[in-house]
């Protein structure tokens, strides 16, 4: 029984990952490739591409960053897992992310005791999108390569904290009926944004702002699509498991 639930979540996630790969290839990847053209303007070396020009502070931050800039792009060191090409790597990553979010969604369904069905799948998907995409994006919008940003570890800590607080806040706000829970839910949801995401002091970039805006919308739109597909597939899978049980 246990294995069937885990398998259902895995399969739903993998299928959602395939859908996401297609959506990404159409809406998101072209913008990343376009941005990389600007990113490398004025400095042929990849090393230069991630440090905003003329900023010694950010250059220093980039230097101290545990993730060095050199491996960020094609042709640099690092290299791809299993020798996959760029599209292959993206598809693999989408499958892993899909499976991961599918399993986390299953865990949320089981821990809250709020069932996911074909009917409530969209709502569960919306909750996942809010938790993992939209609410963190309020502080750290989806960024194109070549954008100024502060230390990676700081942003990752803020991102993880925001995801955890958003999940807790949504649970308190939506799943609990007590007044104190709803008030606390709003407070918990607002907390990471009141604290504030780590932001760079210097925000100039070679990448045009129009591209950044298009990218942020495309990233949020495609991930909304991903989460709705994932929610619907999970709901349908759970309906079938319940029938067969």
């Amino acid at each position: 029984m246990m294995v069937r639930y885990l398998l259902a979540a895995l399969v739903a996630g993998l299928i959602a990952g395939v859908f996401m790969s297609v959506a990404q290839e159409i809406k998101v990847t072209p913008l990343i490739l376009h941005a990389e053209e600007f990113e490398n303007v004025g400095g042929a070396h990849v090393e230069q591409s991630l440090a905003p020009r003329g900023s010694s502070i950010l250059a220093l931050a980039d230097f101290l960053n545990p993730v060095t800039s050199a491996h960020a792009h094609e042709g640099a060191d690092g290299g791809s897992l299993f020798g996959l090409d760029r599209l292959g790597g993206t598809i693999l990553a989408n499958l892993v992310v899909g499976a991961g979010y599918g399993l986390i969604l299953l865990a949320a369904v089981l821990l809250t005791g709020i069932p996911i069905t074909a009917k409530t799948g969209v709502l569960w998907g919306a909750a996942g999108w809010l938790t993992f995409q939209f609410l963190p994006a309020l502080g750290l919008p989806p960024e194109l390569p070549g954008f100024p940003a502060v230390d990676l570890a700081d942003r990752q800590v803020w991102w993880i904290a925001t995801v955890l607080l958003s999940a807790a806040g949504l649970y308190l706000l939506v799943a609990r009926s007590e007044i104190w829970a709803k008030v606390l839910g709003v407070v918990v949801l607002a907390l990471p944004h009141v604290y504030g995401a780590p932001q760079p002091e210097i925000i100039s970039s070679d990448v045009p702002a129009l591209l950044a805006a298009e990218f942020a919308v495309a990233a949020l739109a495609t991930t909304a699509f991903f989460w709705v597909v994932l929610g619907l597939l999970m709901g349908a899978a759970m309906d079938r498991l319940e029938e067969g049980a």
Binding site: H71, A72, Q133, Q156, I160
Partner: peptide
């Protein structure tokens, strides 16, 4: 999710690069 989106590994980063950006994981 950690492996695909957050892990500080050059190979994992390069493989998942475009997907990391597309999901809005903090990157670079």
């Amino acid at each position: 999710i950690f492996g695909a989106g957050l892990a500080n590994s050059a190979v994992l980063h390069d493989t998942a690069h475009d997907a990391r950006h597309a999901y809005g994981f903090p990157c670079h």
